[in-house]
Design a protein around this nucleic acid. Structure first.
Lengths: 233, 233
DNA sequence: ACAAAAGTGTTAAGAATACACCCATGT
DNA sequence: ACATGGGTGTATTCTTAACACTTTTGT
């Protein structure tokens, strides 16, 4: 093994490849969806993958994330209501081009629509429950990890706000939780418990759609991450 | 901004410096302690710092962690009962030598004693409640972050096993929780709740010390991380 | 006999769960 | 009038929290 300190000072220190991947999640039709791109080249040519790319010197990982999501899927990190670091993966075998370290981020938003351009790589949202079979690298594991973390996070923080529109009904809120948890919740208990948290307030407006009683609209008091006093569900 | 993909294939891709830091924690006299080294050179010469160093190409971050902890503090990752990734920090300003990305790990153990050698850098344990004032970089923040994460982790996992000896008394266990939480717990409630989790079993042996009733010794059923059904405290 | 830590139960308050009907609207 | 989703309360079980004395040992 080389002496890394010596190597550095004699100009021989060579860092591993550093990459950044984004796990972009949103709700579509009350289902949790993830953004994938189609890889235009080897390795894993024509496989679906999380948007990702190289992190260059002088760039922070979030700057790299922003650049990569813009180039490959037409998104800016400003399109997301919440961006959080997920995990840093590294294995020698992970990338056939050699040893790589990948910093992954989870990006949450609402009504996200990829804008295609010359550089985008066929970005599309897929329901997490029905991912394509040909997923590149270990991206299926990373998506599962992101899902698990999100599921935990919405139980002890207000993170669910990032998946909802600014104004929403209690039923929408409940469906959002159900989509992430993957199970149904009791309506009366859900409302009682959630309203007790004082995270949301009624706007006074009503949401009308279809032949039934209109629903009260609510909004979150805080649009940034907060840890709950009592955890939820 | 350079075209990173093109740069790569024309051999121009230059990754940032990648470093790895370890937050080594253990209990000493029922106090949570962290391992620091004294920096032998600039930047932050003679400041106390978390042991850390460069991650070279071909090394995984845990391999780098192992190499660095061995060189600077005489530890092997095998000395720790639990090693977990903490967070990946990156800011251009973090390291005066230029943009760096640092992957940090938390290492938990019991009865850890640094072994000094030619390469070690005066490794010493400090109580988290009384850290030296001259801490390098943002290491005070990183230590606080590790502490917060550990505090959360021991409430929903069995991670506390990693801070205890193989055989321990219920009082030792309670003191370990109290040391991490930074507050006292009720003895009767603690025992009732913890024993209900079925994480530990009595060994049948007794621990005698001093002029008082001897204590039953227990051991953890699993010496690896487990998520609890009901979270604790 | 004394000092010191180990060990042990009950009560009260709060939280979680299970569960079914009326309300307001559009067609 | 009917179909549709919105909205609401109570009883039970479980969990948490508060609290003090007896036991076993070494000196």
């Amino acid at each position: 093994m080389i002496d890394i300190m010596t190597a550095k000072y004699s100009g021989e220190y060579v860092p591993p490849i550093l990459t950044v991947d984004g796990v972009v999640l949103q709700l579509i039709n009350n289902q949790l969806n993830v953004l994938l791109i189609r890889r235009p080249e080897e390795p894993f040519k024509d496989y679906w993958a999380l948007p990702g790319g190289y992190n260059a010197q002088g760039e922070t990982t979030t700057q790299a994330l922003n650049r990569i999501l813009r180039a490959k899927a037409g998104f800016s990190v400003k399109d997301f209501a919440l961006v959080e670091q997920l995990y840093t993966f590294d294995t020698v075998a992970r990338d056939p081009r050699g040893h790589a370290v990948s910093v992954t981020y989870t990006c949450l938003g609402h009504n996200l629509a990829p804008k295609t351009s010359k550089t985008t790589q066929n970005p599309q949202f897929f329901p997490i429950s029905h991912l394509p079979k040909n997923l590149a690298y270990d991206h299926a594991d990373i998506i599962k990890y992101a899902h698990d973390r999100l599921s935990a996070k919405i139980t002890y923080t207000n993170a669910i706000y990032a998946l909802l529109p600014k104004f929403f009904t209690l039923t929408q809120l409940q469906k959002a939780y159900e989509a992430v948890f993957g199970r149904e919740l009791d309506k009366r208990n859900f409302r009682k418990k959630f309203l007790d948290l004082n995270l949301i307030a009624p706007t006074g407006d009503l949401f009308r759609e279809g032949a039934h009683r209109p629903a009260k609209l609510y909004k979150f008091n805080k649009q940034h991450l907060e840890t709950l006093s009592r955890s939820f569900d």
